[in-house]
Simulated assay, not measured.
Amino acid sequence: MTHALAVPFRNLASSILTAIALVGEPHPVAVTATLSEWKVELSERRIAPGVVTFTVTNAGSIPHALEVEGEGIEQETEVIQPGAHATLTLTLKPGTYEVYCPVGDDSHKKLGMDTRLKVQGGAEHGDAMSSGYSSTAMHEAHAMEATAPAIKVTGGGPVIQILPGPFPFPDSAAPILQAFGDEREGLESQVKNGPYSNNVAPTSGTFTFTAWDKGAVRDSVDGVAEFATQDGARWKLVLDRVQTKDVPHHPRFGGVIFGLYYHGVTQVHTPLVPTINSAVALWAFGHLYKNGALVTDNAMVHVMLLSHTRRDGDFAIACWDCSKNKIDELQLQILPGPGEPKFDAPGGFLFVNWEQSRSRKLAS
């Protein structure tokens, strides 16, 4: 009798132990990550520690990837093509993790594809989820604003005006232009006669500015450029506000950005510029004067302190991939504001380089 009951009892005990084991093995936390130009969106910003599976979708128009870094972990997905998906499963302990796109030597990250994931346990996790941003998170946000990076740039060395002409690396740029959709036709017209050419004229001038990267719409710039053009005209540009809305050429961005790897092969902005690294890139509006008379209060301005692209002497573009060169070439491009007529200058624009420039980071 006792023996007859033993088998069912063992089966029941085994079932109970199996159930307990299953309860003790929590399912992975599911986090959905959506990538696009230029942001990383997470379905959860705070989760419990343990196994986490990220389901990643590239909703953008160029390749991206997802990397999770922190607490001794640094793991990433493969590069994800537009419209494609990937998964990444990790075991995360309590802490703060940086979640970003590592494509382009972290260039996409610097453009804004960077966010944080908090991993918290127990009641602390529940409180954080119910109360939104914690006091710690708010303190971190205020600290970041208080320490917003700033840079002062001074133009130096030979000064050249860049005139319209053919882009010297059309075969290298051609396959990259295929990804530019509706803007492709306009860009292709610049291959034969555009603003980035070997057609240059020596000139003279000065340019000094300070830029602050405060994030989103709070970026700031203050500077003055004065220079002559090939026809003997004297120009002055006063910079006092940045352009934080979209700017032309796929993908789009504006404001002040430090440490950007783009152009050329990167598929970030126009490929009709060699691949470069920049200490600072900014998009701004300015007050433009010619021979002392106001031309416009709404000139569209793009400035880069970038890796050297031009050789000494004739100042021809020396490389298709210039990203490893010294960062000392200061480039100023000025276009008419929206709806305004072209400037009285070759090509209707102003494009001036200072070939041996310098910069220094400023204390906040």
Rank of each mutant, 00 (worst) to 15 (best):
I276E: 05
F227P: 06
H249E: 15
D240R: 07
N193S: 14
R241I: 07
G186C: 09
F169E: 14
L260F: 03
W235Q: 05
N193A: 13
G186T: 14
V242E: 02
G255P: 00
S204R: 11
A279Y: 00
S278E: 14
P202S: 07
Q267T: 10
A179N: 14
P166H: 02
G186Y: 07
A233W: 01
P168Y: 11
L163W: 09
L288H: 00
D219V: 03
K214S: 06
E185D: 15
F258A: 03
Q267P: 08
H287P: 01
S197C: 06
L272G: 10
L237D: 04
D213Q: 14
F258N: 00
Q267M: 13
D222F: 07
N277A: 08
Q190F: 14
L187A: 06
V280R: 01
G205D: 07
D231H: 01
N198L: 05
P168G: 11
T244Y: 11
D240F: 02
V191T: 13
A174D: 14
L272C: 04
L260E: 10
G286M: 06
V238E: 12
N193D: 15
H250L: 13
P248D: 02
F227C: 05
P271E: 05
V268Q: 11
P166T: 02
D222I: 12
D222N: 14
H263R: 05
Y262V: 03
A174Q: 14
D246F: 11
S189F: 07
T270S: 15
D246Y: 10
P175M: 06
I160Q: 03
T266P: 10
F180A: 00
G286Y: 04
F180Y: 15
E183F: 08
F227V: 08
A201Q: 03
V280F: 05
